Simulated assay, not measured.
Amino acid sequence: MASHIGKLPIAIPAGVEVTIDGQSFSAKGAKGSDSYTLPEGITAAVEGNEIIVTPADDLRPTRAKHGLARSIMAGMVKGVHDGYSKTLQIVGTGYRAVAKGQGIEFFLGYSHTITVNPPAGITFEVPNPNTVIVKGIDKQTVGQVAANIRKLRAPEPYKGKGIKYADEHILRKAGKAGK
């Protein structure tokens, strides 16, 4: 039995060029290009403007990677066409971010500032001192860079101070009970 996710075809949007050469898959679009090596036993083919991913029928471990391979390929096609972004918000008095060259300098209540430089393929935007946007074509890298920035000062549950994702809700705790 094949994966339910793996059975779904991947639509190729206009402006995206897909190349499949044996186990090598590559996608090229307006935002850039990316490549992926398919696991052994998984094959992909372009039919019309869709990509069909199929597993080998005789290899159970291959079937287990069928949906994963399809999801990675779909993410690559979306990434080179639209790109990915994560928005982080900085909450706290005196906490802020300032663009410094390609990187960002954070003031997070420590005795020193923290400078974060983007890895290859990632760009930062600082629309205001309390918002940072991480952008790129690789979904996993964008998420990892955003998580690393959030880890610099994770939000605390009493006042909610720290760096949080824009769509994240921080569960607040009651402070000391006063008499």
Rank of each mutant, 00 (worst) to 15 (best):
I133P: 03
D34K: 06
T93P: 09
G29T: 01
R150Y: 08
R172T: 15
N128Y: 08
V134G: 00
T62C: 01
G121R: 00
Y110R: 07
Y158K: 15
N130S: 13
M76F: 02
P129G: 00
V53F: 00
K78R: 09
N130T: 12
R153Y: 11
V145T: 07
Y84N: 01
F124I: 01
K28I: 04
I5Q: 11
I72A: 09
R60A: 07
T123N: 09
S111E: 14
I52V: 08
N128S: 10
R96W: 05
L38A: 03
R63D: 00
T62H: 02
V80F: 05
D58T: 01
Y84R: 03
I90W: 01
Q144N: 10
P118L: 10
V134I: 15
T19D: 04
I90A: 02
G67D: 04
K159S: 11
M76V: 03
V116F: 07
K161S: 12
A11K: 13
M76L: 02
A2V: 15
K65L: 12
I163R: 15
D58Q: 02
I114N: 02
A69C: 00
E47K: 04
V134R: 01
N117I: 04
H4N: 10
A177K: 15
Q89G: 10
D21K: 02
K28F: 01
A27T: 01
R150C: 06
S33M: 00
A74F: 09
F107M: 11
R150V: 10
Q89W: 14
H81A: 14
V98I: 13
T19R: 14
N148S: 13
S3R: 05
K173A: 12
G103E: 11
T54I: 01
N130Q: 08
T123H: 04
K78T: 12
G75F: 09
I10P: 06
A11G: 11
Q23W: 09
L171V: 13
V91S: 14
K31M: 12
G41K: 04
G94C: 08
Y110K: 11
I51D: 00
K179F: 10
S35K: 00
K65F: 03
R172E: 12
A120I: 13
P13N: 09
G41S: 03
V18G: 10
I12V: 12
V126G: 04
T131F: 06
T115Y: 09
I72L: 08
V98D: 07
H169M: 09
I122F: 07
E40A: 15
I149N: 04
S33H: 02
K179E: 12
D21M: 06
A2R: 15
Y165H: 15
V134Q: 01
Q144E: 15
V145D: 07
I163P: 10
I51G: 02
R172M: 12
A166C: 13
A166E: 15
